[in-house]
Amino acid sequence: MAEAPFTLAIGRGPMGDALRQAGALPDGTPVTLPEIEPIHRAFAPMAMQQRFDVAEMAIVTALQAIAFGKPIILLPITLAARFQHRCIIRLACRPELTPGTLAGRRIGVRAYTQTTGMWVRAILAEAAGLQAADSQWLTQDPAHVAEFADPPFVTHVAPGLKLPAMLRDGLIDAAILGNDLPEDADFAPVFPDPDAAARAWFDRTGVVPINHALVASRAFAEARPGTLAALLTALRAARPRRDPDLLPDSAATMAHSLAHVLAASEAQGLLPRRMTVEEIFAPARALGLH
């Protein structure tokens, strides 16, 4: 028998669109899917107020929310991931800007806590020994979790400024962008041949650069674990199959990559305390969600 409707904030893509088309889980449970574009506008309301029963959330935001005691739980499925090496760009006329020459430079990113920025900083640390505090970070947005305070090497700028325009005007030396990465001959990746570098990194580390996962409010999860199990089944059935597979969909297959996220987040000052993968997935596991 179908249960009462529940709200799910999820972005556009094969998994979310399959649910939009169906309007319900396979068992007939109705799903209300609010239109939120871009989906990152759902992150703060979910983290701070549990505005939805279930929501897509950037992995750094989810980890911060859990670390600061927000009543949400992480569910074992990846909704979005991508190789990140191409996401840091420079002006094409400045070929001297490479991963090894970014110390002391001004780097723009939407928010210091943005997951894409976390991944790029982790990659720069590995590739060039560049630590977060070695550069000047210019940001436009605060963290989605209000308790987090940016470190002292981060400067907030007017939110109306666009990162590509700031790069053109010389206000920053490099910029990190995600889905809004410009396709413009004025810009070039900081990493030479970023696609080859990303694939070599993935082959060497086995780490999936997870961007977004799924969270549920603790109250909803504890009241309706069966609905969450059915939701996970539906999302996994709609999951696109690609090579390489960048969408791990279980606690076991996400563990290695999440350990990397935790280590990088701790090194970059993104978390108020040390966390483990076991801690993160314990609430879902206790509800039988693996």
Rank of each mutant, 00 (worst) to 15 (best):
V145E: 08
D173A: 01
D193V: 05
E183L: 08
D184E: 06
A133C: 03
R242L: 15
I107M: 02
A197K: 05
I36M: 09
F43E: 06
R106Y: 09
R20N: 08
G16N: 00
G178A: 15
A196Y: 04
L246S: 04
P34W: 06
A237E: 11
H290N: 14
Q49V: 00
P182F: 03
P38C: 05
D184P: 00
A175W: 04
L163I: 01
F153L: 06
E126G: 04
F220R: 13
P182S: 01
P240G: 01
A221F: 12
R224G: 07
P5R: 09
N179E: 14
P38R: 04
D169L: 09
R168Q: 11
H290W: 14
H40Q: 00
E3T: 11
R121V: 01
E96L: 10
P45M: 10
A237Y: 03
A188D: 00
D180S: 09
A229Y: 05
G16H: 01
V190L: 09
A221N: 08
T61D: 12
F43V: 05
F220I: 13
K162R: 15
M275W: 07
R12W: 05
G28S: 03
P182E: 03
L177D: 11
L163V: 00
M166D: 12
T101A: 10
I39H: 03
N179K: 10
A42R: 11
E126H: 07
A143T: 10
A127E: 15
I10V: 15
R12M: 02
L289D: 05
A42E: 13
P152G: 09
V120P: 04
L181E: 04
T233G: 15
E278I: 04
R20Q: 10
F83G: 04
R121T: 08
A252G: 13
P159N: 14
Q131C: 12
R218M: 10
A47E: 07
G178Q: 13
